[in-house]
C-alpha cells in the first residue's frame, strides 16, 4: 500500500511544500534578527547590533518584563482553576458537566477580539464606576484577560489525562482506608501532575503571545511586549524586534520541548508504577 507510486510522491512533495510554507516567516525572522539596518524590512548586512540594542532600550526590556511577569501569574491562575475543573469533570461528572462544557467551548471559539472589546468596558465599569481599584491596574487586567482561554486549555488537558487513567487507583486508595483528602493529595495529584505541568506551560506561552485582548485592555505603563510590537508596526519596525522574537521563540521551543519530555517520561513512569503494583 505504501510503495512509492506517482500519487504518493506528489502527496509527499505537496506536504514538503506545506511545511516550507509554515516555516518560511519563522526562518526569515530568525535571519533578519541579524539585520544591521535601521528598519527591519530593509536588509543592510549582518550584524549583532539588534541583540545588543535590547540592552540599551528600556522600553523593550520593560515590555518584555511586563509580558513575562503577566505570563507567570496568568499561567499559575489558569493552572489552579483548570486543574480543579478538569478533575471535577473527569471524576465527578453529572448534570453540571454539559453546561460547563458548553461554557468552555464558547470561551475557546469566541474570537479574541470579542473578549477584548467586552473586557475593556467591563474593567471600566468595575474600576471606575464601582471603584474596585485593582481593575484599573494594568497587570491585573492582563492577567485576567490572559487567564480565560488558558483556563479552558488546562481544563481540557487535565480532563483528558484523568479520563485516560483508570479510576481504580483512587478506588484502591479508598479501599485501603485512605481518607478522601489523603487520596486526593497522595494519588490523584501525582497522577495529574504531568498534565498540570503541561497545561501550565502552555498557558504561559499563550499569555506571552497574547496580542488582541492585551491591546484592548492596555493601560499605559504596563504595555506588554506583543502590544508594543503591534504599535511599532505602525511607527516603524526595528531589527531588535526580530532579535527579541528570536530569543522568545527559542525560549518557547525549549519550554514546549520540556512539556513533551515530561509527558513522555511520566507516561512511562505511570506504567512502571502500575507494573510494580
Amino acid at each position: 500500500m505504501s510503495r512509492p507510486s506517482g500519487t504518493n510522491i506528489a502527496l509527499g512533495a505537496w506536504t514538503t511544500l506545506v511545511f516550507l510554507f509554515l516555516f518560511a516567516p519563522i526562518i526569515v525572522i530568525g535571519i533578519y534578527s541579524f539585520n544591521g539596518g535601521r528598519l527591519l524590512t530593509a536588509w543592510d548586512g549582518f550584524s549583532l547590533e539588534p541583540f545588543t540594542a535590547i540592552i540599551d532600550r528600556p522600553t523593550v526590556r520593560h515590555t518584555v518584563a511586563v509580558s513575562l511577569q503577566t505570563a507567570v501569574v496568568a499561567a499559575l491562575l489558569a493552572t489552579v482553576l483548570g486543574t480543579l475543573a478538569g478533575m471535577a469533570m473527569a471524576r465527578f461528572p453529572g448534570h453540571w458537566t454539559g453546561p460547563f462544557t458548553l461554557l468552555l467551548l464558547l470561551v475557546s471559539v469566541t474570537p479574541e477580539i470579542v473578549d477584548g472589546i467586552a473586557l475593556l468596558p467591563w474593567f471600566v465599569t468595575l474600576g471606575q464606576d464601582w471603584s474596585l481599584l485593582p481593575f484599573n491596574n494594568g497587570y491585573v487586567r492582563l492577567v485576567i484577560g490572559h487567564s480565560l482561554f488558558a483556563t479552558a486549555v488546562v481544563t481540557y488537558i487535565v480532563r483528558a489525562r484523568l479520563v485516560g487513567l483508570d479510576a481504580s487507583l483512587e478506588e484502591a486508595s479508598a479501599d485501603l482506608y485512605a481518607k478522601p483528602v489523603a487520596t486526593f493529595f497522595k494519588v490523584t495529584i501525582p497522577l495529574v501532575g504531568p498534565a498540570v505541568l503541561a497545561g501550565g506551560l502552555l498557558a504561559f506561552t499563550l499569555s506571552l503571545d497574547n496580542t488582541v485582548i492585551s491591546s484592548f485592555i492596555n493601560v499605559s505603563g504596563t504595555t506588554s511586549w506583543p502590544v508594543y510590537v503591534l504599535s511599532s508596526v505602525r511607527s516603524g519596525l526595528k531589527p531588535e524586534i526580530a532579535a527579541v522574537s528570536t530569543i522568545l521563540l527559542v525560549f518557547t521551543l525549549l519550554v514546549l520541548g520540556l512539556v513533551a519530555w515530561v509527558l513522555k517520561r511520566s507516561g512511562s513512569s505511570v506504567t512502571d508504577t502500575m507494573a510494580v503494583n
Partner: peptide, 26 residues
C-alpha cells in the same frame, strides 16, 4: 510536532515575518 511549532510561536511575529518577505525591499 512540526505543525504545532508555528502555531505555538507568536502569531504577531509570524505575520511580521510575512511583512518582511513581501516588503518592497525584499
Amino acid at each position: 510536532a512540526l505543525v504545532m511549532v508555528p502555531y505555538w510561536t507568536s502569531f504577531l511575529i509570524r505575520t511580521i515575518g510575512w511583512k518582511v518577505i513581501l516588503s518592497s525591499e525584499g
